[in-house]
Nucleic acid binder design. Structure first.
Lengths: 261, 261
DNA sequence: TTGACAACATACTCGGTAGTATGTTCCCTA
DNA sequence: TAGGGAACATACTACCGAGTATGTTGTCAA
């Protein structure tokens, strides 16, 4: 049930650990990705140092460079993982055979929820888009970056198609569909820049927020969603992502991972 | 007609050049701010170096450090200038005694247009918000940063009030006004991340784009704007900002400003 | 049991960059 | 017409951070 989805996304990890002990290796890489996502979220790609990531991991550079060739590669891996999370949340909904209006509403909700649940990764995605305009150093990296942007575009294209379908079926007064799609996603993505959990019921809080955003976005399309769509979504299963704040960990004290007294 | 506006924004330049030759000094500082805005736009605060800015200016570090204490100070100055541009565009409209619906429509248009016309500065504003969450190094800078965020909040508050007024007068089905305001601005700000001029009629292109965005945003509020608002705005006078692309200038060749043969 | 390899840690190099210290030029004033 | 200061340029320091080279430990297979 999760095999045919993956569409064209290259599987998450890349480093040459074919066969061997794939499970443990994958776990370690995931931990690195999580730590990196946190650092990139808080400091940005340029300002975050590899040593920062290592400190969060309670490890040293060596561990990271053993799995990733460069800082840029690490960033790209985090980006891929973020996009994979988005696809896993939205693509199944996109492939369902539901009415256009209901479909776009559900897609929007899934997107908004995975965004709130996996904030650090989503921030990296935003940076990746930004990075695209300035230009990543080497030519080889530029190529990789182009790949990532293409994935991003495929993702946006799902929404564009879904929106086009609604505009068509409901005869909505929207003429510029690419722009409408961007505005639509801009509303949903907005929370990346300011959201942080307020009360204890984090999940309920996020669902309520997402619903409001989706309502706004749908109205932006001049579409009135069937209220039924918003019910029964109260307990969607979005996996909880890494959420620590780094300000605590980030005192200069270098981590001493192997303190064998 | 431009004196009573300035509200609470500290005047643009800060360095101790009271009296003396304020005009020439101001010009030079403006040039630095423009160059810095371009660099920060393209590389981000962390990745952009002071030497980069100097290169764009066809000058050296000395000139920049003569006017600004540190890189952070320079960034803040650019931020202030960006906010000032926004206020100059929107505050007069906000202070007009027009009907709520027309007012918010005009404010939105002004905002969208100044955004498109002054893109580099607007990108810096986005970075400033981001920077707020991570924390600027020293305590003194943190204080300054808080000032800037407060200015930003005052700006957003104008929109929140205007939106609240519309919701009230038109009895719109919007209950969470702060969130609605954020979504509203998210739509208008979206173009910062992807817009670049396509055809020669830059101004016309920008107006058409802005109008579409405003339409989307207003529909998001469930508000139907009077079509008349969008006419007669075809030639609003937004001053054209710096728009060069840096990729040309950014070859390592160090600028030789005073090549007196 | 040995040795080969993965998964790290440690210890280094080296380029880039913020900031400083010190010229140099020009203008304006006394 | 000295001279003082503004507005830069030049030359330098000090540090941080990416990447590398090399050691160390555990594990597993033959």
């Amino acid at each position: 049930m999760s095999e045919p989805l993956r569409s064209g996304i290259a599987s998450l990890s890349e480093s040459r650990s074919d066969a061997a002990a794939p499970e443990a290796t994958g776990r370690s890489q995931d931990a690195i990705l999580n730590a990196a996502a946190l650092c990139f979220r808080d400091y940005g790609f340029a300002a975050a140092s590899i040593d920062d990531v290592a400190r969060v991991l309670n490890a040293t550079k060596g561990r990271i460079y053993h799995h990733f060739r460069s800082k840029t590669d690490l960033f790209f891996a985090v980006y891929r993982r973020g996009m994979a999370l988005n696809f896993e949340a939205v693509e199944p909904v996109f492939n369902e055979k539901t009415a256009p209006l209901e479909k776009i509403a559900k897609m929007a909700l899934s997107h908004a929820l995975v965004l709130l649940a996996q904030m650090p990764y989503q921030r990296v995605l935003a940076q990746g888009v930004h990075m695209h305009q300035t230009g990543a150093t080497t030519a080889a990296q530029r190529e990789t970056l182009a790949d990532l942007i293409e994935i991003r575009n495929r993702y946006e294209m799902m929404f564009r198609k879904a929106i086009a379908a609604v505009v068509d079926s409901e005869d909505l007064p929207v003429n510029d569909i690419p722009l409408a799609t961007r505005s639509f996603l801009a509303v949903l993505n907005g929370s990346v820049y300011w959201y942080s959990p307020k009360n204890d019921d984090i999940h309920g809080e996020q669902v309520r927020l997402a619903v409001k955003q989706v309502r706004f976005a749908l109205r932006g399309l001049a579409a009135s969603p069937p209220e039924s769509v918003f019910d029964s979504w109260a307990n969607s299963q979005i996996p909880a992502g890494p959420y620590e704040t780094l300000s605590d960990t980030h005192n200069k004290a270098v981590a001493t991972p192997h303190t064998t007294t």
